[in-house]
Design a binder for these strands. Structure first.
Lengths: 234, 234
DNA sequence: TAGTGGTCTAGACCACAAA
DNA sequence: TTGTGGTCTAGACCACTAG
């Protein structure tokens, strides 16, 4: 394993084991030594080795089974974290001055596709909020939100006129589960106008339906200006 | 906290603490009891409470600091895992019969934007592979891969003619780091032909540059058929 | 049924950051 | 300075499952 120093704290052990895997010395499907054997090698207790291996297992590098031992994961399906940020914060951290403009807000009857996605009766009353997010004065995103009134009690005009709705929601209507879809669309005329871009430009649409303990909170459509990208990494 | 039974294993404690947060009893910014106090309440040792709280911290619900105590996260930025699957597996698990057709493969001189992304000299020789992925005979994705020869030694025609390149790469050229970008594009004419869709249709393009210990492996452009979506959730 | 990982304890010392 | 979480130990018992 490592030539000179034998690590004995769990982070170092994790690093060392990971190197065996990434260097190809321990290949996918290989069974690696038992906890007790590794503990003896590293000169520490089984708990410490266990901590390191457990961490690698939750990261997807190892598969562990009682009695079956620890095996290098056959299919290292790496997950790239795609975050769902607060819009103003995202713009700010990109080094731009965030702006916010409310386009519309008020109760409406839910259109069929919204009602279906939220599990409501068609025509049920929902709160519809549309707003524009700017970066250095340039329109970057348009949010189109449909909220279930019962789940956002206390949200009113004094909130959405002064600050973005998502910041109120984050504090007062936390979600426990969400479904996210990313698709490419041709920019509709009305949105293209807000973005000051040619209509039909290809742009990203992120749709998110959120629940709190199996009760639907709302549906968000986040339209991105043409040319905007989502970035992530492993 | 929980009304009747007082949990004493770490998963139950995590569940119990999470409920305090999600029910709004412990609000963002609130300091929660110290480990020792929780241990006394739950009737277990500090280690067990620590395990539960550590788990909630890595999940983003708590923020912990030595001497500062444990605080409910002010900004519960939830991460949605976006997986980078093996293409044939993804199609198969969607209930369709996967197909694969090689479009082109061989050495080429790297175009400027590819060379730049990979950190190579412009005109350096790279391996260029283009292939079509089908679901039930219908084209779903086109992969456009540029590989650094030194990093994929052993990859040859006998591999890419019989099976998708990504399956060889996964086993033989594991990545340690990757940068992923998702954007919307208008389908170029040549790709639209393969997809049998109108050109200029808005569609998703996923670009991934991968490294192994700071050495570039390759660049992948994955073009999606118009209408295809990426799905994930929390 | 036996062997492996999963969990918990009771204690100790340490590292860091707030007061 | 001092209180908090972070880590480690040495041991024990348990839960799951492969053989």
């Amino acid at each position: 394993m490592s030539k000179d120093t034998i690590p004995s704290d769990w982070k170092a052990i994790r690093r060392d084991v990971l190197e065996q895997i990434q260097s190809g010395k321990w290949k996918p499907g290989d069974k690696i030594p038992r906890e007790i054997e590794l503990a003896a090698y590293y000169g520490c207790t089984r708990s410490t080795v266990g901590r390191a291996l457990r961490d690698l297992a939750t990261a997807g590098f190892l598969e562990r089974r009682r009695k079956g031992g620890t095996v290098v994961a056959a299919n290292p399906t790496r997950k790239a974290p795609l975050d769902v940020p607060i819009l103003r914060d995202a713009i700010r951290s990109a080094g731009a001055e965030p702006g916010y403009r409310l386009l519309r807000a008020g109760p409406e009857r839910a259109p069929p596709e919204i009602a279906t996605a939220l599990g409501l009766a068609v025509g049920a009353e929902v709160l519809h909020v549309q707003a524009l997010y700017l970066a250095d004065g340039v329109a970057h995103q348009i949010e189109d939100r449909w909220l279930v009134p019962a789940m956002v009690r206390g949200l009113g005009p004094d909130h959405w006129s002064t600050q973005p709705v998502d910041e109120w929601l984050l504090r007062n209507a936390p979600l426990t589960r969400a479904k996210i879809e990313i698709e490419a669309i041709a920019l509709p005329a009305e949105l293209a106008g807000h973005f000051d871009q040619p209509e039909q430009s290809p742009s990203l649409l992120v749709t998110r339906v959120s629940w709190r303990q199996s009760k639907p909170i709302g549906l968000l459509r986040l339209y991105h200006a043409a040319g905007q990208r989502l970035k992530t990494g492993i």
